Amino acid sequence: MEIPAQLEALFTKGVTELMLIGSDNCFIDRGGALERVRSPFDSDAELSSLLIELALESGSRLDLAKPMADFSISNFRLSAQLRSAVSTLPMVTIRRHPKSQITLEHLLTTLMLTQSQANFLSEAVRTEKTVLISGATSSGKTTLLGALVHQSAQRCAVIEQTPEIKVSAPSFSFLERPNNQEGVGLISQSELLTAALRMRPDRLVLGEVRGAEFVALLQAVNNGHPALATLHARSLAEVPSRLLLLGQLANIDRELVAQLAMGIDYVVQLENRETRRVSEIGKLKLDPFEVVPIEL
């Protein structure tokens, strides 16, 4: 299954993301400010019809009863919404991932990180350290995560909500499953994490920590399983509060969350200002609970 030609044509050189807000408002992202371009759709009905068709072909559900869906087609990830109680317009955000595996060497050529940062992260992976990749939306967290997974010679258990990270045997991947039409059948990332631990992985990889799976991941890390994961935070200074919030959502005491977080060896902060790049690498400190930048 391929993405329709009228959408793929908008992904010219340098474009990584496409946003449609109704059929009249179309924007592309080349890694800086959004650029408005001509929409390939003549009406909202045409856009809605295509989104429903694409979701169905990908094995997902998108209709009036379930007006929001995340799914993947080839190397594109789509987050779609129909006109409904949650949105006055049909919308979709499409992110393109490279068809070939991105490596640290490639990220060096795009200036996403420096040679010293690449050497540091390569050594961290080689010595089985746990690395948390932090950044805002579209800062390149998943791109760097995939490069580090590729850098690892370990058997990685990759757990994601939607498929974005390429792996090959002996590594393997699990995908979260949403509820079916009857509202049952959910398989959460926490459950997948537990299942993955029974399959003797050398390293756990979590596409993004955003809920109860965070505490399960920290427990696994403190039991000796190195991990790679991403977190949504705008700066190193914001990371501790985000970790505490995730712990609070899982009804875990603040002190215990901070103690468990000491199993995270390094925090990598990404930013997207004209270009995506690693801005800082830091290490968590317990008292006070903060991230201290490392000089490289």
Rank of each mutant, 00 (worst) to 15 (best):
C156W: 02
I159Q: 05
T162H: 10
V278C: 11
F289A: 05
L56W: 06
R177C: 11
Q181W: 10
T194V: 13
G31Y: 06
G22N: 04
Q269F: 12
A55S: 13
T127R: 02
S173Q: 15
S134W: 02
A261F: 07
T103Q: 10
I94L: 06
S84Y: 08
Q81R: 14
K283C: 12
N75I: 05
E8L: 05
L206E: 08
R126E: 04
R95C: 03
K66Q: 10
S168M: 05
R77Q: 11
R126H: 05
Q219I: 12
F76W: 06
L228M: 07
T130K: 04
G185N: 15
T103R: 09
K129V: 01
R234K: 10
T110N: 03
V209C: 14
R234D: 08
R234A: 11
F41G: 10
G207N: 13
Q161G: 11
L186V: 08
K166H: 03
R254M: 02
Y266Q: 09
V92H: 01
C156P: 07
T194P: 01
L113K: 09
T162C: 09
E8M: 03
A258H: 03
S134I: 03
L175M: 10
R83Y: 04
P170S: 04
S168D: 02
V268H: 08
T110F: 05
K285M: 14
E280G: 02
E213S: 08
G282V: 10
L108S: 13
G263I: 04
H150T: 03
V267D: 15
P40H: 14
R254L: 00
T137A: 11
K166M: 06
S116V: 11
S43C: 09
L50T: 10
T110H: 04
L18Q: 06
S84C: 11
C156N: 15
T130V: 06
V86H: 08
P226H: 04
T16F: 02
V92W: 02
V268E: 08
A69T: 13
R254D: 09
F41W: 08
I165L: 12
S60T: 15
I133D: 02
D287M: 10
L107I: 09
A195M: 13
Q151V: 00
K66M: 07
V209I: 13
A237W: 01
L132N: 05
M262E: 09
L78S: 07
A69E: 10
S48K: 13
A124W: 04
